[in-house]
């Protein structure tokens, strides 16, 4: 369960005349287990910012964010680290990895956090890479040289290899062809059916309908702008 209560979020640009940008005021949102919420609204309205606040990546000035009843509280970074380790999974828009690290290891990493059996983890990583049509020949290469679509699928594999109770998806299907898009959407549906609370941004109507997502237009739930 993900809950956002009365969230205010603003950016203060200290080096640009202390400009204040109010992004959200009194933002309220709740995602239940087994539910997919799709955020909609024009670009720049703050869709990614919501995911980032939930993930602890962005701070907020007032209000409350609760993940399975744990508060996101930046005065205790350790708690956020623990939440990320155990509860929140996040598939970002772009793949961010250390150069030279092979694809297979990147995909294995989140699972190794909780399972030290290298062989078992490797097997699972191979399985999901196969499912996502990443050619075997690529597994031992760094994804930094891959095509956009391949990179995105590696990113998805890494995010979905575990079963997080809460899942944040930032345009996970944006640069995929229709075959691979369906594969990813099916994977997401599996997570939903297993009881995850899922919130995501999906650029296309097709994906939102496929996932049977509850659509929320941000401009309607926040007072700002």
């Amino acid at each position: 369960m993900i809950e956002l209560n009365k969230i205010t979020k603003k950016f203060t640009l200290h080096n640009q005349g202390k400009t204040n940008i109010l992004v959200f005021n009194n933002l309220n949102l709740k995602i239940n287990p087994g539910e997919i919420v799709a955020l909609t609204g024009p670009s720049g309205v703050g869709k990614s910012s919501i995911l980032k606040m939930i993930y602890g990546n962005y701070v907020f000035q007032s209000g409350q964010i609760k993940i399975n009843n744990h508060n996101i509280d930046h005065t205790y970074p350790r708690n956020i680290i623990e939440l990320r380790k155990n509860i929140i999974g996040y598939v970002s828009q772009f793949l961010r990895v250390i150069p030279r690290v092979p694809t297979i290891e990147i995909v294995m990493e989140p699972l190794l956090e909780i399972n030290s059996d290298q062989d078992e983890v490797r097997e699972k990583a191979e399985k999901i890479l196969l499912k996502l049509n990443i050619d075997k020949n690529l597994w031992n290469l760094s994804p930094l040289t891959f095509s956009g679509g391949e990179q995105q699928r590696v990113n998805v594999a890494r995010g979905l290899i575990r079963n997080y109770p809460c899942l944040l998806l930032d345009e996970p299907t944006a640069s995929l062809d229709s075959v691979n898009k369906d594969i990813v959407l099916n994977l997401i549906n599996e997570k939903k059916d297993s009881g995850s609370s899922i919130i995501g941004i999906f650029h296309d109507e097709y994906s939102r309908k496929y996932l049977n997502a509850r659509e929320i237009d941000i401009t309607k739930i926040s007072d700002a702008k």
């Binding site: 200290h14 080096n15 602890g56 962005y58 701070v59 930046h74 970074p77 680290i81």
Partner: peptide, 17 residues
């Protein structure tokens, strides 16, 4: 604070710079 938070949403003017 949290590494990615401080780098992605820095609060202090110096960090922003």
């Amino acid at each position: 604070g949290l590494c990615d938070q401080v780098l992605d949403d820095p609060q202090h003017s110096y960090t922003q710079l």
